[in-house]
């Protein structure tokens, strides 16, 4: 048994323990905190699986921003969660446990019976990478080979925004999402909110830029930018924009919009929908990604902020 295997087993055991704790602990708030730690450790598993792109995404979006959403909700619901509902009866729990275990067992069997040799598309990705001029295979898959999925998933994000906004009360419609954060303008949070964002913005854009050839990309960069924006909002330095704002709307559709326009360009003038002309492939993809970065950052930030709650006038 190599030292790497020992480490991997230890990692799996710790993560499993956290997962059990997250499910079993009575207090919801603790479960949320447990889940955040869990998310960060799962990112380590992804590194061990040699999927650094996914590790970055999982840490930034799955563990980080997802954790923030859950934590915010847990804080708001604290107190009500404990008093509520009866747990299901023992029989129900036992049968749920038995059935879940059977599903897990079936899955373990299915995933551990290896086909030999394991099928892979990695060589195909490599041999076609020349068409885009980018070296990061994951970015190539996301932006070229399976661009349709990526574009539709941008629409999913937009629909999530529509769904969240549609929960506003009629009076608050068009107003600003989330509660107004009041913080001491000379306090330590405001200090951090002035100091960190310039560096954070550079890091976010760097992650996008380097995503062409190395791990990184629009999602990961967008998540960093979103967290910078949220920091500034939470420090009370800026307010969330009113959802009626025309600029906001344009930013939110910029990513999928540009994707669609470039795709249609390929349909009209090129070889196919979402096909990039070889000479311009890299600049086109990078400009779509730049628009997506902006859209993703704004979308993620607004998803965290929630439904409009206050009218646009202060």
């Amino acid at each position: 048994m190599s030292i790497a295997t020992v480490f991997e087993i230890a990692l799996a055991v710790v993560v499993l323990g956290l997962a059990i704790w997250t499910i079993a602990v009575p207090d919801t708030y603790s479960a949320t905190v447990g889940f955040i730690a869990y998310g960060l450790l799962v990112a380590l598993i992804w590194v061990r699986l040699d999927a650094v792109d996914v590790a970055l995404t999982e840490a930034a979006i799955g563990g980080g921003l997802g954790g923030v959403v859950l934590l915010g909700a847990a804080a708001r619901l604290r107190g009500t969660e404990a008093m509520t509902m009866e747990r299901p009866s023992l029989i129900v729990r036992l049968s749920a446990a038995a059935l879940s275990a059977s599903i897990a067992a079936a899955l373990a069997v299915a995933i551990l019976l290896p086909p030999n040799p394991a099928p892979t598309l990695a060589p195909d990705v490599v041999s076609n990478a020349g068409a885009t001029g980018m070296a990061n295979p994951v970015t190539n898959v996301l932006m070229a080979f399976r661009a349709m999925d990526t574009m539709l998933e941008k629409v999913v994000l937009l629909l999530a925004i529509v769904g969240v906004w549609s929960l506003a009360s009629d009076q608050a419609w068009g107003g600003r999402p989330g509660p107004r954060h009041q913080a001491d303008p000379n306090g330590v949070l405001a200090f951090l909110a002035r100091l960190l964002p310039p560096a954070g913005i550079v890091v976010g854009i760097y992650i996008l830029w380097t995503g062409a050839d190395h791990p990184g990309g629009a999602f990961q960069g967008g998540a960093v930018l979103a967290s910078m924006w949220l920091l500034v909002i939470m420090a009370g330095l800026v307010d969330t924009p009113p959802v009626r704002s025309r600029w906001l709307r344009l930013v939110l559709v910029a990513g999928p919009g540009l994707f669609l326009v470039v795709g249609l360009g390929g349909l009209c003038f090129g070889s196919a929908f979402l096909a990039y002309p070889a000479a311009f492939a890299k600049p086109l993809i990078l400009s779509i990604e730049a628009a997506m970065l902006l859209t993703i950052a704004t979308t993620l930030g607004l998803l965290l902020a929630g439904a409009p709650e206050r009218s646009a006038e202060r």
Partner: peptide
């Protein structure tokens, strides 16, 4: 049939 981005499956969609 339409191949998106002119990439044939299994790589493309």
């Amino acid at each position: 049939v339409y191949l998106l981005g002119a990439w044939p499956p299994p790589l493309g969609v």
